[in-house]
Every structure is written in C-alpha cells, then in structure tokens.
Amino acid sequence: MDKIVASVSDGHVAAILRDAPAVSLHPEELPRTDGNSPILVETDGITVFYSHYVPKGHSYRRRGGAHFDFHQDPVPIRFLDDRDPSTGKWIEAVWPGNGELYGLYHAEVPAPCERHLFLPEIGMARSLDGGLSWVGSHTVLRAPPSQTDCSYRNGFFAGGFGDLSALPDRERKFVYMGFTSFVADEGAQGICMARFEYADPFGPAELWSAAGWSRSAGDMLPAPLWPMVRGWRHADPDGFWGPALHYNRQIDAYVMLLNHTAGGDGNLVQEGIYFSVCRDLADPRGWSRPVMLVSGGAWYPQAVGLEPGCSDTRVNGRGRFFMAGYSAWTIEFTLTPMMSPPLGPLRPDQVMFQALFGTRHAAPW
C-alpha cells in the first residue's frame, strides 16, 4: 500500500493519488452512493451522511471508526416538517454552527413533461440531534419556471439547480455553495456559485451572476465558472457538473473536484474527474483551469480529511479520495514541484472496481 498510482499537475499545484485499503461509505447491499456525502471527523469517530435514489432520493446517517470501519447499521434521516414528503431529498452538505448542524439538500421535483424528468432544487434545514432529524426545511434556490425545457434528452433533468457542495469560508463570514445549473438558457448552464451569510444561513442567498454577487430573485440566472461545451438538452452533453469543495490546509487554498460528462447517450457517462484551485471564494473568477485527475471513473468524487476536525470540506494534508462512495486511494495536493514527470490520471475500469469492492459495484461506464 501507499504506492503512487496517479499524479497530475497544472504547473502550480500537483495532485497525487496513492493506493490504500478499500473502504466504502455505504453497506454492501447498495451498489453505490448517490450525490455528495457529507462526512464529519470527530475525536470519537466519523459521522457520514450518504444517499441513495431507490425508490426515491433519501439519506442515511452512519457512525464509524476513524478508518471508515462501520459496526452499526445506518439510520434513515427524517425531515420532521417536510411539506412535500413525496419529493426525494439528498443531504449533500452539512456544517456545524451555534450548537446546531445545518444542511443543504438536493430535491428532485417531477417536471411537467411527458417523459420522466425532474426539476432539481436546493433546500436547507437544521438539526439539533447530530443529523438524525431535520427541521425548518425550505427551498433556498429554485430555477425560474421559464427555464424548464421538456425536450431535454440527458435522461435526468429538464432544468433546475442541484448537485451541490458547500462550506464556510475561513473568516466564517459566508457559506459558499457550488452547484450545477441545468436551466434551459445554455449561457447559464454548468458549475455555478451561491453564498449565504454564516451568521444567518436561513437568510436570502446571493448568486454569482454576470453582475457579480447579487441577491437571488425573480428570473435571475447564475454565471457558470466554465461554460458547457454542449448543453443539457442533448443526449450527450459535454461539461462539468456535481462539484465537491474543500479547504486544503497544505496548499492554503480551496479545491473543487468535478465530474465531467461527454459522449454519453442519455446517461451522463463519466468522461473523467477533474480538479480546480481557488485562493478566494469571494472571487469565482479565480478558479484555475480544471485538470484531469481520473480518466473515466464514477460520479461524485470527494476528498476527505482524516484528522479530528476535518471533514469532506477540510483536508489538512493527505486525505481519502472517494468516488461513488468508494475509496481505495489517498489524495494529497502539494505546491512542491514533482521530482519526476507526473504519472498521469488514474484510469480505473469496471474490472478494477469489482476486484477492489466486489461485483455489486455500479458505475456509469
């Protein structure tokens, strides 16, 4: 173990993957997790929130040891005042504050279309019992109805905002959220940013738009960090989606891991996993050109810190690298130049995943 299996660099920041014992966030009866999985590393173990999509989106809370060894059954989380319990909800970001736990969720509302498509929206809730139950759930970002397009052929969505990750900035002034815009206007599709006041997370959101940070209202649309090459209305869209944000102490910068789809057929096939770096969350123009870390791979990459106080949004040095809830690798970002040429991206395939994790693994190849 600990052998370098992939290394890439943008000339300023290098990312290194090493092999590690295989672990998963979900029990073996599930083929994979779905969505970003918030993880809190504490002195007495870890708390994981993972999600699944059958029969509808729902999340579980799971406690385990520091090495991702789980000895207790996962517990379904509950929304105690859910106004629409028929809509699937995935908890995709959590952070502690004021003695409570705040969470953002991806919700999938059925689209008013003949085909089976959804309009994702983003909601927020809070928990007083460590994430077992949630109250105050309400929508914080919903795309304008005029941005629905029932002609979409991507296989999943007809518009909407979803597939998110979020974290507080280091000054605890704002909570920043990266999310995916699937709206009809192709100029507003792709990875986008929003923020909330840290002291008032239930207050109104601001969107990063063509006018800069603006209070979300009416028909306002966000400005994507990287425009889609081919829009969501096609069966084979080409672009980034599903960001996973973390603060990386070793390079003193924020890192975004990204899914990239291209060449699909109504299935959002995974072309690869990329990373981008930014020094200042308040200036989304500062995100670097994405660099491929994994060729192919599975949806929903994450970096997870391993020391107490770390999480899926804070990595001190070397952390765990997950995709689809599976990890057989550590990840490290460094500013130190590599002593030898990079090995290039990790190139997993179905055979590798089944050898590591068993034949029940499911990934979008």
Rank of each mutant, 00 (worst) to 15 (best):
H260W: 08
F196Q: 06
E29S: 14
S37I: 04
C278M: 13
A363S: 07
Y247R: 13
I39L: 04
F240T: 01
S51F: 10
R318L: 10
M1F: 03
P21R: 14
W232I: 06
V140E: 06
D81L: 06
A143L: 08
L221W: 09
S7C: 04
H260Y: 15
V94C: 14
P348S: 04
H138F: 07
D129M: 05
H260K: 15
E28W: 11
P55Y: 07
S216M: 10
A66C: 12
S311Q: 07
R285H: 06
E114S: 08
Q354S: 09
G212Y: 03
W299L: 14
P144T: 02
V277I: 15
H67A: 15
V75P: 07
A14F: 08
R153T: 06
G358N: 09
G325S: 00
L119T: 08
D84N: 12
G88D: 02
N154K: 04
L25R: 14
Y60V: 00
H58G: 02
R347T: 10
A188Q: 08
V229F: 12
A22M: 11
G231C: 14
F79N: 00
S151I: 07
S311N: 14
R347M: 14
Y152Q: 13
E28Q: 15
R215W: 10
Y274V: 07
A205L: 04
M1N: 02
R215Y: 08
R32G: 00
M323I: 00
D238L: 05
N248C: 13
P308S: 06
S209M: 13
L225P: 05
A205I: 03
T359M: 12
L268K: 03
P144V: 08
R115C: 11
H116M: 13
W232R: 03
G305V: 12
M220H: 05
W299I: 10
H361Y: 13
A143R: 01
F79I: 01
Y300I: 03
A235G: 08
E197A: 14
E171D: 05
I122E: 04
F322T: 00
T336D: 09
S133W: 03
G358K: 09
I251R: 06
R314L: 13
W134F: 14
I191D: 11
E29G: 10
Q302D: 02
L306A: 03
S214I: 11
P337I: 10
C310Q: 10
T148V: 14
F68N: 13
